[in-house]
């Protein structure tokens, strides 16, 4: 569905992503984990069109979308939920949802998606007329995911959905993400916690210093594998002993 091939991205002269590749198949929930500054968010921003890679290719359903503008990419079927939620705080919850559907022409389907989104996130139904900015963090996170679904995307990219949320809310968010996957959505989720990745993903990519250091089906990976790849220990016996919790 979505293929990223050896992309390189820099901020000015500073490389953030150095030859990173991954792919997501239809109906998969893929998690990208890695420490702060590893290049995860940069990769997401690049796929969504906010940044242009200096090298490499991004394909959606076989079509090259590298370097297209964000709105074009959104219209081609990638919905990006950036880190930090970004609800439109002056717009009501209902308006936030409708913005997601403004580019669509299939009015009837929009209506049914709207109802479906509210069924997924019942809390939003109670808050429809409230300005987005007045919602709690967890409600905002639900709103932005619901909003992303309103675009009827082929792939949803979610950047650090757990950021700044209480663990119980994080569980709720992941329950929803898994449910979406079960109903056929394709998702890429960026996460810092290896445990949450193992728990929720079908497949995992570990990213460090702008490159993939480990990939695999989560069923076949262990905590230890992930931590080693995550922290970049070269000498496993020594390094782990010094740092392992």
């Amino acid at each position: 569905m979505l293929e990223v091939e050896t992309i390189e991205v820099s901020y000015g002269r500073i490389p953030a992503v150095r030859g990173l590749s991954f792919r997501v198949d239809k109906g998969e929930l893929v998690t990208i984990v890695g420490p702060n500054g590893a290049g995860k968010s940069t990769t997401m921003m690049t796929i969504a069109g906010a940044l242009t890679p200096t090298r490499g290719l991004i394909r959606l359903g076989g079509v090259d979308i590298t370097g297209k503008r964000p709105e074009e990419i959104a219209r081609l079927g990638i919905s990006f939920v950036p880190e930090g939620r970004h609800v439109f705080s002056q717009l009501t919850v209902g308006e936030n949802l409708l913005i997601g559907a403004d580019m669509r022409r299939d009015r009837a389907a929009v209506r049914s998606d709207y109802d479906r989104a509210l069924a997924y996130f019942p809390i939003l139904k109670e808050r429809l007329e409230m300005p987005g900015g007045k919602l709690s963090g967890g409600e905002q996170q639900q709103l932005v995911i619901a909003r992303a679904l309103m675009t009827r995307p082929k792939v949803v990219l979610v950047d650090e959905p757990s950021l700044g949320l209480a663990p119980i809310i994080v569980d709720l968010v992941y329950d929803i993400l898994r449910k979406l996957r079960d109903e056929g959505s394709t998702l890429v989720v960026v996460e810092q916690s290896t445990h949450r990745a193992l728990e929720n993903a079908d497949r995992i990519y570990v990213v460090r210093n702008g490159q993939v250091t480990l990939e695999g089906a989560s069923a076949k990976l262990t905590d230890k594998d992930l931590e080693n790849a995550y922290f970049g220990f070269e000498d496993k016996t020594d390094g782990v002993a010094a740092v392992h919790f």
Partner: peptide
């Protein structure tokens, strides 16, 4: 800190999150 279970849960995440709320 390295041996504190609460820290391990909160920081690297935990499989028993359902009980941590």
């Amino acid at each position: 800190i390295q041996t504190n279970p609460a820290v391990i849960r909160a920081y690297l995440g935990s499989k028993s999150e359902k009980t941590y709320a």
